[in-house]
């Protein structure tokens, strides 16, 4: 009698260990397979010449290998770029902006420059 009583509560339900095994495997799977990148898109000009013709006024942003930036010939900084461009665009909304960069400029710098252009209201990245 005593033995029966002692063994009864021991065999209640399924053990937790298999459950934990499966949950750990699921957790590992989801940890390894999922990622948290939030993708953003920058539109790059597909024509290379800009949507406008040669007759419209254009501004040239030059990016040098050492990270310095010229705005139509005059040196400027990346922080001042968007205000200067916004001012130019306000006076002339048809202004086309082109980015010209040296060969060794890393992509991250180009994207940062384009972020400034985007802040000034330019929607298409015109690289040449």
């Amino acid at each position: 009698m005593r033995l029966e009583l002692a063994s009864r509560p021991h065999r209640s339900g399924i053990g937790l260990t298999p459950l934990i095994d499966v949950v750990f495997i699921l957790l590992l799977f989801f940890m390894l397979a999922s990622h948290f990148h939030q993708w953003r898109a920058l539109t790059v000009s597909a024509t290379g010449q800009g949507a406008t013709g040669a007759a419209t006024p254009a501004v040239l942003v030059r990016v040098h290998n050492d990270g310095s930036i010229d705005l139509s010939g005059g040196p400027t900084s990346i922080g001042a770029l968007s205000t200067k461009l916004a001012y130019n665009l306000q006076r002339n909304p048809a202004l086309a902006v082109q980015i010209e960069s040296d060969g060794g400029v890393p992509l991250q710098t180009l994207v940062e420059v384009f972020d400034q252009l985007h802040a000034a209201g330019i929607s298409e990245m015109n690289l040449r």
Binding site: H37, Q38, W39, R40, A41, L42, T43, V44, A46
Partner: peptide, 9 residues
């Protein structure tokens, strides 16, 4: 026709 550059936030 259309080229986009993918970046992260």
């Amino acid at each position: 026709q259309k080229i986009t550059l993918l970046t992260t936030r």
